[in-house]
């Protein structure tokens, strides 16, 4: 990896200042960025490690919202009783990310900022209609994700927290890619307080995470596994690689959605 300066500020404003410099980049848990740096696919001149900033960590409930700090690790979310009580789907999701060591370092902010098409968190953020809070603004999940590895974050913008509306029920059904064990095609299903159903799909789309309207409509009017059977999921727009064809991914969207429905009924 190319060399760079390393700083580890303990408060957000210092981090934001440091990120204003040319070639500065934020480091969350490093579980994506470090492998990328090893491949020399990125060449920051300064890495600003966010892991020393306490205000970015933590989980709290605010009314009908669950707020997770941008620097909170997957492991902390998976182990949180508050999360389990409010959004069990997030516990399922985080406890299936990578392995214990990855979960001890990787953060929600890093995962969302990276927007890997096979990452897990984006499905939850989109399905739950989360709000991504940065040091500059609040962004609706719908606007945040902009295709493969792309988000609307600006240079130096830091995800400080993610606000999730607490649904009536939620679950995450992951189907793993056989090698990386990321999502080959996974579904986050949320039954909202108003009875509407939202289905976030990750791993499948050629443009990254998406919501499946057909499934959402069918399940909003009839929340049952058989309702899923009646929906046709098109292979169009699904990605194609060594591990899955578009047709196979389309099939998995249905199968995982059915399992999700069964899991919460």
């Amino acid at each position: 990896m190319y060399n760079f300066d390393f700083t580890r500020p303990t408060d957000l404003s210092a981090a934001v200042d440091a990120l204003r410099g040319d070639g500065a980049q934020a480091l969350g848990g490093g579980q994506t960025l470090i492998p990328v740096l090893k491949q020399r696919l990125a060449a920051p001149t300064t890495l600003v490690d966010l892991s020393g900033i306490d205000s970015l960590k933590g989980i709290r409930r605010m009314g009908d919202m669950l707020v997770i700090g941008g620097g909170t690790t997957h492991g902390a979310v998976a182990a949180s009783g508050d999360v389990a009580a409010a959004i069990p789907g997030l516990v399922q999701l985080t406890s299936k990310i990578g392995d214990p060591q990855v979960r001890n370092r990787g953060t929600i902010g890093g995962s969302l900022a990276n927007n890997d098409p096979a990452a897990c968190y984006p499905a939850a953020a989109l399905a739950l209609g989360a709000t991504i809070e940065t040091n500059q603004r609040e962004i609706a999940a719908e606007d945040f994700f902009q295709g493969l590895y792309a988000t609307c974050l600006e240079d130096g913008e830091v995800i400080t927290a993610v606000k999730f509306p607490i649904p009536a029920a939620s679950t995450y059904q992951k189907f793993e890619q056989p090698a990386s064990r990321f999502s080959l095609t996974s579904v986050f299903l949320a039954k909202m307080q108003d009875g509407s159903v939202r289905v976030g799909v990750t791993g499948a789309g050629a443009d990254g995470v998406f919501r499946h309207e057909g499934l959402e409509q069918a399940l909003s009017s009839d929340f049952s596994a058989s309702a899923v059977d009646g929906v046709s999921v098109s292979a169009e727009g699904m990605s194609n690689d060594l591990h899955a064809t578009p047709e196979y991914r389309a099939n998995l969207v249905k199968v995982m959605t059915k399992r999700a429905v069964e899991a919460v009924t």
């Binding site: 579980q31 470090i34 214990p100 060591q101 990855v102 001890n104 370092r105």
Partner: peptide, 8 residues
């Protein structure tokens, strides 16, 4: 526990 190859 962490992967020491993935921590500075």
């Amino acid at each position: 526990s962490v992967k020491s190859c993935s921590v500075f």
